[in-house]
Amino acid sequence: MRRRTFLKAAGASGASALLAGCTGTGGESTTTEQSGGATGTTTTQGTTTGGESPTLTIGTYGPFVDTVSSSPGPWLKDQFESEFDATLKWQTPDSGVNHYIERSHRGVESGADLYVGLDAQMLVRIDENLDGELFTPTEGLSHSGDVNEELEFDPKGRAVPYDTGYVSIVYNETLGDDGAFTAPKTFDELLKPEFEGTLLAQNPTSSGTGKAFLLHTIDAKGEDGYLDYWAKLKENGVRVLGGWEPAYNAYSKGEAPMVVSYSTDQVYAAESGEDMAKHQIRFLNDQGYANPEGMATFADAANPELATEFMDFMLRPEVQAEIAVRNVAFPATTTAELPADFAKYAHEPPEAVTFSYDRLKGNLSDWTDAWEQEFASK
């Protein structure tokens, strides 16, 4: 979720722990007094009107709103306010959704109506750490039938997907012998001697992309085989860094010809006029790990009906297309049409792989803990 900020700062050639939230700045920063004397900093865009119009307060992660020209947030605010008799106010607390979890722990109201930016892994963590419900089931959406069923990730019906990304291998074919490096096509091929020391990955205990890649290996090799597979990856020289940003930075410097990243990498490269040979996409086993993002209404929302209207607005075809382009992702619905120049460089895998909430619940911590015990401390 911090990719946009990094790539704009470093150039296309040049995610944090779950529930730690994403960081970003923009709008007006305010510090508020919270229950028990604690303070927390939140970043908001938009102000409450003094008239009769209601205010819809939406929590999200910083990069969703902090760049006026390209982030979805400012555009969504303008469009929503132009059609509805309401004011939209964004909240971007430094700790993301964890801000609202901590408030719930202390018995303090959320202070928002909706959260945008949830995924299945976050919901599992939330439900494992809170006794009550932070979010409420969603009902009454006229566009709910347009959502791709493969992207649905909340069996309790709280979170509704609004976009998705696919974690894949990005590779630089100019770094091979005679400028002809070709990435492996399968997980098994990745273990061959010719690919020794060629892959940069991320720690799954501190990185969203790292966790997605780990889950993909679990899907490919099974719960009983993924640690053995990682042991072989280690023997073959995989380099595991703390997060996406340092891994991609190392890749950009030519330290390795492959990095675990996103299948929309060429979108950034094209915008920056980069050599596309340095931004090739490989879906191992012809698969990409999907990590859909969703939105959900807080259980204590002051304006739940308005929150439902906004969620339905987010699922409209033209809004879905705009979100995808601005967030450099894919729509969650089957009705959105992407611009031709964007679709040319945003690659979808032949097959999407993702773990459902039910598969992750009770397993996610065990899988990551086992990986950490086996590899992170050695």
Rank of each mutant, 00 (worst) to 15 (best):
residue 73 G to T: 00
residue 307 A to Q: 02
residue 155 P to S: 11
residue 264 T to W: 00
residue 35 S to K: 15
residue 293 E to L: 14
residue 216 H to Y: 13
residue 357 Y to L: 07
residue 223 E to C: 11
residue 131 D to I: 11
residue 198 T to Y: 00
residue 124 V to R: 00
residue 134 L to I: 11
residue 301 A to S: 06
residue 309 E to C: 06
residue 247 A to L: 01
residue 343 A to I: 10
residue 207 S to N: 02
residue 92 T to Q: 13
residue 101 I to V: 15
residue 248 Y to S: 06
residue 102 E to I: 12
residue 71 S to N: 04
residue 222 G to W: 03
residue 161 P to C: 05
residue 329 A to C: 11
residue 184 P to I: 09
residue 77 K to F: 00
residue 367 W to H: 05
residue 335 T to K: 03
residue 355 F to M: 15
residue 96 G to N: 02
residue 104 S to I: 10
residue 213 F to T: 07
residue 18 L to G: 11
residue 300 D to H: 00
residue 374 E to G: 13
residue 226 Y to G: 04
residue 81 E to D: 04
residue 350 P to V: 03
residue 316 R to W: 03
residue 205 T to L: 12
residue 316 R to T: 10
residue 269 A to W: 01
residue 332 A to P: 05
residue 236 N to P: 09
residue 177 D to M: 11
residue 377 S to D: 14
residue 188 D to N: 14
residue 370 A to G: 11
residue 370 A to H: 09
residue 100 Y to T: 07
residue 33 E to K: 08
residue 85 D to T: 01
residue 269 A to I: 00
residue 186 T to S: 07
residue 195 F to R: 00
residue 317 P to A: 08
residue 275 D to F: 07
residue 112 A to V: 08
residue 188 D to Q: 10
residue 334 T to Y: 00
residue 45 Q to F: 10
residue 181 F to S: 06
residue 367 W to Y: 03
residue 261 S to I: 05
residue 254 G to A: 07
residue 330 F to R: 10
residue 202 Q to W: 02
residue 355 F to Q: 15
residue 210 G to W: 12
residue 94 D to R: 10
residue 163 D to C: 14
residue 57 T to I: 15
residue 92 T to C: 10
residue 107 G to E: 03
residue 118 L to N: 09
residue 348 E to A: 13
residue 84 F to I: 12
residue 200 L to P: 04
residue 219 D to M: 14
residue 123 L to S: 11
residue 121 Q to K: 13
residue 312 D to Q: 06
residue 359 R to C: 11
residue 221 K to R: 09
residue 377 S to K: 14
residue 12 A to L: 00
residue 259 V to R: 03
residue 126 I to F: 03
residue 86 A to C: 01
residue 310 F to Q: 04
residue 235 E to A: 06
residue 18 L to V: 12
residue 336 A to K: 07
residue 85 D to N: 10
residue 354 T to M: 15
residue 173 E to Y: 12
residue 208 G to V: 14
residue 9 A to N: 12
residue 127 D to E: 04
residue 288 G to A: 10
residue 205 T to G: 15
residue 135 F to K: 01
residue 10 A to N: 02
residue 89 K to M: 13
residue 359 R to S: 14
residue 161 P to I: 00
residue 131 D to L: 02
residue 365 S to F: 02
residue 1 M to Y: 13
residue 39 T to R: 11
residue 166 Y to C: 05
residue 373 Q to E: 14
residue 139 E to G: 09
residue 53 S to C: 08
residue 5 T to M: 04
residue 177 D to T: 15
residue 63 P to V: 04
residue 123 L to R: 08
residue 295 M to N: 09
residue 201 A to G: 08
residue 90 W to S: 01
residue 80 F to A: 08
residue 92 T to H: 06
residue 351 E to F: 05
residue 108 V to M: 13
residue 134 L to C: 01
residue 62 G to F: 01
residue 297 T to D: 06
